[in-house]
Design a protein around this nucleic acid. Structure first.
Lengths: 335, 335
DNA sequence: AAAATTAAGTTTACCGATAACCCCAACATA
DNA sequence: TATGTTGGGGTTATCGGTAAACTTAATTTT
């Protein structure tokens, strides 16, 4: 590989002069500058960013840790982060924890040894807390994305899960539903708790008692059934609508419902959080849509501000609104 | 940040001894080893991988460049690559070129300055050739993924697009279709050309003449219509089936068809390459399914073999089969 | 008992870049 | 004439680690 010393030799100058040409610093005559530049071109010189990072103590790399790379919400978020990072002159090191704490830990170790300048962190669950403490201990700035983690103070970009959930459920109530089930992600994830709260809010506002036998906990990754659905349908007073904690849960749920011959929305309405991405033929789901791209873009912005110290010491909390989009999966309850 | 020198001082040994403990090399007594390890723990030491890379001349990082991060085919491929890379002790630097040559070039520059050990490259188009030549010039090993690039010899993992296309079209012929349209990606992408060839193969095998007015060129990113569909339907002898070059084209196509009131598969059958991922409620498309995860995993394997010189000099070409999966989007032509 | 090994570390140089400081001639100023 | 000042560049030390060669005392071999 060509180094500044090779260039320096060819150009009959010192390595420092070459460095100055590269960085446009110091006093170099136009003649020398041009000569050095020409030689750099000819020799296909590319600066070694590791050597530079070592002395500058910054890598110009950020890391993005997401819990599910197959979920369109997170891939869209990733695009937003990537675009913003590139625009601000940073590279982005992706990590996909697959909602697994073990994998997440491996990524945190990697992040530390890579000396990235900051991390965009979408936690696998509340149990990610030690990982975040590790980052904090090593003074690596981070911004939480989508999910807050109890016991961890930091900058964060989240959605308004509680309000979004309330709007979805109130939409169902407005259609005439009174028996509304909740199929949620794991309650060890903050958004799942918020969505549960929003669900309860909506019930309370409409004088519907909270019925525990209608509230289920599954996983955001996929709908873990284990007969839950059948039990739900066999209830003395079964639900006429379901609020699914996220897009994948809704998909899994509907698949099962179809299998069981339960038509949506005729016999059962289904609403959920988050859109389903570009690969859907017929946007069918009534959703609380979140601006996923913005999550990523704003997250990077906050992170870079923090890295550069271009912000006040208080933690910045950005809450992005979700939008209720009514489509075909929700309708009036059967008579 | 804690360095080996800090550790060395605490442990009353030289930095080299610490280095040897870390790498399990050289001769160090069990006593010293234990003491140094304990101190590393206590001080939360994490090796600086840049410093190490600088002297070892290897980064243990690979780069994966894909053209569309929103497409489930590529995200699944990415997961395969990520898992394999981590298993082999490599980090993965993702890049999303968005099918844009400009972005792709930016990533290539980044790759060079980051000194990654190798690149998994899914080219935006044939015009990516100069980018690959740049990598070659700098002796960065790469493996082409999914798409070949004319004028570039290299290791590659591809699908059998020609055969997959033939199978899909023969399936349509078997159902009784004779007027079969092709809505393809840009012909500057190798898979699109192969799929066109496979389409022609199937026609020829069944004595159906190739009709140019039924072959359209769009983009793999999304269905660019511009009245193409209307023209197609208004043909004197309109098609009864369409073979779409990939999943996104099929989705775009079906959306338009639904808008125009053309029922699938009743009035029009649609088949395509590649599955649609986990966010689909009801697997509906008849597809040639490719083992996307394997593309990534095998690609990494090939790449690492090449990096380590654990392979013969000839270029390895891995062709992964595609599987015809018949579902609801294809049926008999209308009577 | 002398020579040869070996165990356990240490010293030195280097990877490729940059910051901070130094140098010297040419010109301007008092 | 003596003294700044400035343009254009060079020297040296350093970032955090590792390879290779070197040291020294203890142990083994002959």
């Amino acid at each position: 590989m060509v180094t500044i010393y090779d260039i320096a030799k060819q150009a009959n100058v010192s390595a420092m002069t070459v460095s100055k040409v590269i960085n446009n610093t110091g006093k170099i005559s136009e003649k020398t500058r041009a000569r050095v530049k020409k030689i750099m071109e000819e020799m296909n010189y590319v600066p070694n960013s590791m050597a530079r990072s070592l002395v500058l103590q910054e890598t110009k790399m950020l890391s993005l840790l997401i819990p599910d790379i197959t979920n369109p919400f997170f891939t869209t978020l990733a695009r937003g982060a990537e675009d913003a990072a590139m625009r601000l002159g940073y590279k982005l090191l992706f990590g996909n924890s697959d909602e697994s704490l073990t994998k997440e830990k491996e990524y945190v170790d990697m992040i530390l040894s890579t000396r990235v300048d900051g991390v965009l962190f979408s936690a696998a669950s509340d149990l990610s807390e030690p990982h975040l403490q590790t980052l904090r201990k090593h003074r690596i700035p981070f911004v939480l994305l989508d999910r807050e983690v109890p016991g961890v103070e930091s900058d964060a970009v989240t959605g308004n899960s509680r309000e979004g959930a309330r709007k979805l459920v109130e939409h169902l109530v407005g259609l005439g539903h009174r028996r509304i089930a909740l199929v949620n992600g794991s309650l060890s994830v903050s958004t799942a708790r918020d969505r549960l709260d929003g669900y309860k809010d909506a019930l309370k506002l409409n004088d519907i008692p909270f019925d525990e036998s209608l509230a289920f906990e599954s996983s955001y990754k996929h709908f873990e059934d284990e007969g839950m659905l059948r039990r739900m349908l066999e209830l003395p007073d079964p639900p006429t609508a379901v609020f699914a904690g996220n897009n994948f849960l809704a998909v899994g749920l509907i698949r099962k419902l179809l299998e069981l011959g339960v038509k949506v929305p005729d016999r059962m309405s289904v609403v959920c959080f988050d859109d389903l991405g570009a690969s859907v033929i017929d946007p069918f789901f009534t959703v609380a849509s979140q601006p996923a791209y913005q999550f990523g873009a704003m997250g990077i912005q906050l992170l870079v501000d923090r890295i550069k110290g271009a912000t006040t010491p208080e933690w910045k909390k950005l809450v992005l609104p979700s939008e209720l989009i009514v489509r075909g999966s929700s309708g009036r309850p059967p008579a």
